[in-house]
């Protein structure tokens, strides 16, 4: 082997080594399609307004949740307000994922998770583009970039707007970071979300949901939204902000009254998300009598 050939071989090896260590491997697995949700973390049929169990809230996160008054949703600005991307894990609808190719090279530029009626599109940039400036406007969808780690797509999202991480119960701030991990196993997609928030969370909030490829999945696309005049008081006094003063939220005890779950658990916090917490409650919890109405499921069909 000549010296020149050796040098070329070394050069090629170096290029391979460098790209293997630094570059994301592009689009190894096809994620596109409609993915029906197999479970749902945010039960829309629950009656109780205050149920923070299992959410690793910080003191600020808990105080903000307890201050929340659902009348604030009647403000025209809030009626059409969207959820932040974490709601993809807690919300009720299917995921519709599509790939976006560069029109010339046909290389995959991004994965897009289509929006729902109240959740914006999430674009996962795969082209290594730089993040926006820290001074830029935040969006509901945020800025997310991803890379393949073996067969799993890992994506990191930042610069969201403040919003409800669960239905009107707890919030994520505009400083939150959401790390996604997509694992496809045939027709099954496992999506894990790790939400870190220095404002409203004391520890990362990790949720996993399972989806199944299904062309008839329950999709509810983004639609235009017109607010209406709901509460005259908010229009007569536009500076009015509905909220509960500390200690005055009238719904705090509902979960305890309905399900015997101790208040300290209902208030959430990092302890309440670990299995060991059950031991702590063992002597305080008494199983309630079987539920007969409003048990957290869909309304019963009308009697014939």
């Amino acid at each position: 082997m000549s010296r020149k050939t050796l040098s070329r071989a070394r050069f090629a090896a170096l290029i391979v080594a460098a790209t293997a260590s630094a570059a994301p491997v592009l689009a190894q697995i096809d994620l596109s399609g409609s993915w029906a949700r197999r479970g749902q973390a945010d039960n829309g049929y629950t009656r109780e307004q205050i149920d923070l169990l299992g959410i690793p809230l910080s003191e600020d996160g808990r105080a903000k949740a307890l201050s929340y008054n659902i009348a604030s949703l009647s403000a025209t600005e809030r009626q059409c307000q969207m959820y932040p991307p974490f709601y993809a894990l807690t919300g009720p609808f299917a995921l519709q994922i599509s790939g976006e190719q560069d029109p010339i090279t046909q290389k995959l530029v991004a994965w897009k998770i289509a929006g729902w009626i109240d959740r914006d599109v999430t674009t996962i940039w795969m082209d290594g583009r730089p993040r926006p400036s820290e001074y830029a406007l935040h969006s509901h969808g945020g800025f997310t970039s991803g890379e393949w780690e073996g067969d799993a797509l890992t994506a990191v999202g930042i610069q969201f707007k403040l919003g409800d991480m669960k239905r009107h119960r707890a919030f994520s701030s505009d400083r939150a970071t959401l790390t996604y991990r997509f694992n496809r196993h045939g027709d099954i997609l496992t999506l894990t979300g790790i939400l870190e928030d220095p404002v409203y969370l004391a520890e990362p909030y990790v949720l996993t949901d399972v989806f199944k490829l299904d062309p008839n999945a329950n999709l509810l696309p983004l639609t235009a939204c017109e607010p209406i005049e709901e509460l005259p008081s908010l229009h007569q006094n536009p500076g009015l902000v509905p909220h509960y003063l500390p200690g005055k939220n009238p719904f705090v005890n509902e979960v305890t009254e309905h399900h015997n779950i101790p208040l300290e658990a209902v208030m959430g916090g990092p302890d309440t998300m670990y299995p060991e917490y059950r031991k702590k409650l063992k002597d305080k919890y008494v199983m309630p009598p079987p539920c007969s109405a409003g048990c957290g499921g869909p309304p019963a069909p009308p009697a014939r």
């Binding site: 170096l14 290029i15 570059a23 583009r129």
Partner: peptide, 25 residues
């Protein structure tokens, strides 16, 4: 030349969001 090539390749293909730098700084 090899160094420049390597730098160019790493720049072109490397980096998820955490490593990227704001373009307008």
């Amino acid at each position: 030349t090899v160094g420049l090539w390597l730098a160019a390749m790493v720049f072109a293909f490397g980096g998820p969001a955490r490593r990227a730098v704001a373009q307008d700084q």
